[in-house]
């Protein structure tokens, strides 16, 4: 156990900063184990709570600020990019937009606690034209709450946390082995999420070329624009004859979609 503690004392702050920066920037790297470990380390008297909290909050804020500016510059294209690199299903854009609609700017405070939302909220805030100062304040509040929660969990766990790590290391053979197992499990979980979504869908997608041909042939198709209202307003355009229904309006307005026609859905 001493070797683990010495390792964390030496590299803990760097691991906290780097993993949080990468994870909050959208790259699927688990950072919560390091946050929890930092808290547990502080509980044993090997460090403070303030340092990992400050480092993690700053790292998260840097990652979020980069996406905020990207969202401001490139709009909805950034949302799709974030969805792809974070291995989240492509409905995550709509989920995020719905959260913003529901909670407004406060979505930034709760965002770090919701998988998928945390990396999508900053570019969406940038897209919406939120002033940078307001974004920084709300984002920092959310980051501090999120970081403090996990560091706090570690502090409460204390020594048993290290015993658990020790057992995992014994099983895996080394610290690197334990780390590789954690990372592999995390990536497997994300990949399974993605596969489950696409399997559930089980609907052959229609290519843009095929749709164009069918429209040119005069087929009676109903196009439904599922982009969020904010996004449609931003682009100012939609596909010919498309009916615009935001995902959050679907339950209320589904009767507008004819049962007897072929329906083509599209989002951003």
């Amino acid at each position: 156990m001493n070797a683990t503690i010495e390792f964390l004392q030496a590299y803990g702050p760097m691991l906290v900063f780097t993993s949080v920066l990468l994870e909050q920037a959208g790259i699927p790297v688990p950072c919560t184990p390091w946050l929890i470990a930092s808290g547990a380390l502080a509980r044993l008297g090997h460090g403070t709570l303030a340092l990992p909290i400050a480092l993690a909050a700053v790292a998260a804020s840097i990652g979020h600020l980069a996406w905020f500016f990207a969202g401001r510059r490139w709009g909805s294209r950034v949302l799709r990019l974030v969805c792809r690199i974070s291995l989240e299903p492509d409905i995550c854009v709509q989920r995020t937009e719905n959260a913003f609609t529901r909670y407004g700017a406060r979505a930034l405070i709760i965002a770090p606690f919701i998988p998928g939302l945390t990396t999508l909220a900053p570019p969406l805030a940038g897209m919406s034209g939120m002033p940078m100062r307001r974004f920084v304040v709300l984002d920092l509040v959310g980051d501090l709450l999120w970081v403090s929660t996990f560091v706090g969990i570690g502090w409460v766990a204390g020594e048993p946390f290290f015993k658990l790590v020790q057992a995992a290391m014994t099983y895996a053979g080394s610290a690197a082995g334990a780390l590789a197992i954690v990372l592999a499990l995390y990536l497997l979980y994300k990949a399974l999420q993605h596969v489950r979504f696409t399997t559930q869908l089980r609907v052959a997608r229609l290519s843009a070329g095929e749709l164009k041909t069918r429209l040119d042939q005069g087929e009676d198709l109903l196009l439904v624009d599922l982009r969020h209202r904010r996004e449609v307003e931003e682009s100012g355009t939609t596909l010919p004859g498309a009916l615009q229904i935001s995902p959050d309006e679907l339950d209320r307005r589904h009767a507008e979609i004819s049962r007897g026609r072929d329906v083509v859905l599209f989002c951003s």
Binding site: L206, A208, T238, P240, L265, F266, S268
Partner: peptide, 18 residues
């Protein structure tokens, strides 16, 4: 049926918009 590539895919092909 969902449209592959969504709105961005349609725009990228240069197809007409309204």
């Amino acid at each position: 049926r969902p449209l592959q590539g969504g709105y961005a895919g349609w725009v990228a092909e240069g197809y007409p918009l309204q």
